[in-house]
């Protein structure tokens, strides 16, 4: 599923114009992105949580050439699946 399929599903289900469903989804995603950019965590019950992890400088290697390179400090978002979703996903495996 991608974003446009999700827009279609929501607009059909809720009887909303696609444009409106699209704005709703964009609003939700923008709020989530802004929160993470500010370093905040996101916690959605039954779904999961997002946090931002800080990585300091470290030395890595270019796997092709073996050359040592300095990796600049960076932040990466991290998703932890919630209990309910984890159980749902495991039910049919």
């Amino acid at each position: 599923m991608n974003k446009s399929e999700m827009i279609e599903a929501m607009s059909q289900e809720l009887n909303l114009p696609q444009r409106e469903a699209s704005s709703i989804i964009t609003t939700i995603l923008d709020s989530m992105t802004d929160a993470l950019a500010k370093g905040e965590n996101i916690e959605i019950r039954g779904f999961g949580s997002f946090s931002v992890k800080d990585y300091g400088t470290y030395y890595g290697r270019n796997p092709k050439t073996g050359e040592q390179i300095k990796v600049k400090p960076k932040k990466l978002p991290f998703f932890k699946v919630g209990k309910e979703l984890k159980e749902m996903v495991n039910q049919n495996s």
Binding site: M1, M6, M10, I24, I44, M88, V89
Partner: peptide
């Protein structure tokens, strides 16, 4: 919104 993501993942 989250229901649809969960549903697809399930």
């Amino acid at each position: 919104f989250f229901f649809h993501i969960r549903h697809a993942l399930t």
